[in-house]
Nucleic acid binder design. Sequence first.
DNA 1: AGGCAGGGAATGAACACTCACTCAGTTCAC
DNA 2: GTGAACTGAGTGAGTGTTCATTCCCTGCCT
Lengths: 245, 245
Amino acid sequence: MKGQVLRRKRKPTSQVTDEKRLLEGKERIAAVAANLFLDGGYHSTSVREIAQKAGLSVGSVFNYFTSKEEILFFLFARNQERTEASLRDLRAEFARLKDEGVDPKDLLLLAYEPYMRLTDELRRYTVLGYQELKSLTVAERRRILEGEERIQHFIEEVIAYGVEKGAFPPEDIDLKAHCLLVLAQSWAVRRWALKRFAKVEDYLNAMKSIALGIVESEILHPNGVAMVTSEREKEPVHHERGTLS
Amino acid sequence: MKGQVLRRKRKPTSQVTDEKRLLEGKERIAAVAANLFLDGGYHSTSVREIAQKAGLSVGSVFNYFTSKEEILFFLFARNQERTEASLRDLRAEFARLKDEGVDPKDLLLLAYEPYMRLTDELRRYTVLGYQELKSLTVAERRRILEGEERIQHFIEEVIAYGVEKGAFPPEDIDLKAHCLLVLAQSWAVRRWALKRFAKVEDYLNAMKSIALGIVESEILHPNGVAMVTSEREKEPVHHERGTLS
DNA sequence: AGGCAGGGAATGAACACTCACTCAGTTCAC
DNA sequence: GTGAACTGAGTGAGTGTTCATTCCCTGCCT
């Protein structure tokens, strides 16, 4: 029963030891699993099914992952990593262009483009995310949401730069960032309604003007008439409140 | 084994006969099930659990529904009906206001408001929809998507009215409708990022200007500069390149 | 070369468990 | 007493996971 406590506490059976080989195996299995999860859902996909499609036995799958759930985690984590890396690049690029004092509109579009491309690349995982978010642990789920929060923050920074330069109105920056993010994701999530656009580029191109329309939108009067907060080109008519803090 | 073939072919056991009573039972069970599905997911919720929370035995649940799946169908169908009814009302109202020649901007906001309210009311089901869409039959799924298509079409009509009146540019009407729809749904789907807004009204209010920003957005030149198709207010400060096509 | 040992990796039958669903039997209002 | 409505133990299919066994490859000894 509680006999041999000599070595490891986990994994008494065989296990893949070579790090590289293990990762390759994980990748292969996860790739197959991703497809099955995507058209069938996580719960309706059995480990047997995954094993079969991956050309392995059931047992082998558990030599690479300790549980079915871990496969899902792996997919999310990989996806997240990828996104974070892109975000880092974007931030660096943003800092550079900001120093150059590039036009805020151009900057916004310049930032939106690679993000949209990324969304397209990872679009299947985005869908998976929306569908299986509640299949995750609380901790895992929070990690995902924090990731998205970071992205939204970045978009906010880009908009804020435009506000600083007087190109965009200062209201509802967070909301506008939310809109841009959601609309980018809608390319993944609601593609059936966007079949008119064959490639991301097409969608992106059409979205550029809309994105600008969003960030440039002015706050409205209760009755629906636009309140002009800053005469975009010339002198400010009346600047409300102090700027910072 | 294959002995008694004497009586019924379907439903040999007891069944609720009274139509009214049956529907009431369905409603009661479905209401309970909806809550469980929503925080736990469809697959992770067992029929036993539903029965227990509804104050019934497992068997009784199957006197009202023939399968667990049917409960999910029932929920989606009810939801859809509700939406369709609202859409009919909206259409009637739209026709009336259109005849009155009301301002396109006002009309857009007037149409957006009740839709957003509906989304809020049904927000839990919207989330359920995004999560469990693939748990449905192909036919069921198509019905849902067709419903959404009808809504998008309606939004397109509202925008088209504005185009007719010369208030909005004529490009990408379908895309703009898509955006408005997605952003309304994002209130349900991505609420954690919108916690700043306590009530729908708050979100709606902030979204009004953005919605106008979307429908009023002009198509852009390849290099990102706005192409002015109709000088909305005054004279252009400096219009670059020829205007159309 | 050939036999052999060692151990990492693959295997799939077996296990324990959960689930949707059934149905013979009970309840109880009329 | 009748029968619609309800009951819940039972059924069998299917699940994630385990592990004793087998496979296979590499290096070593004769």
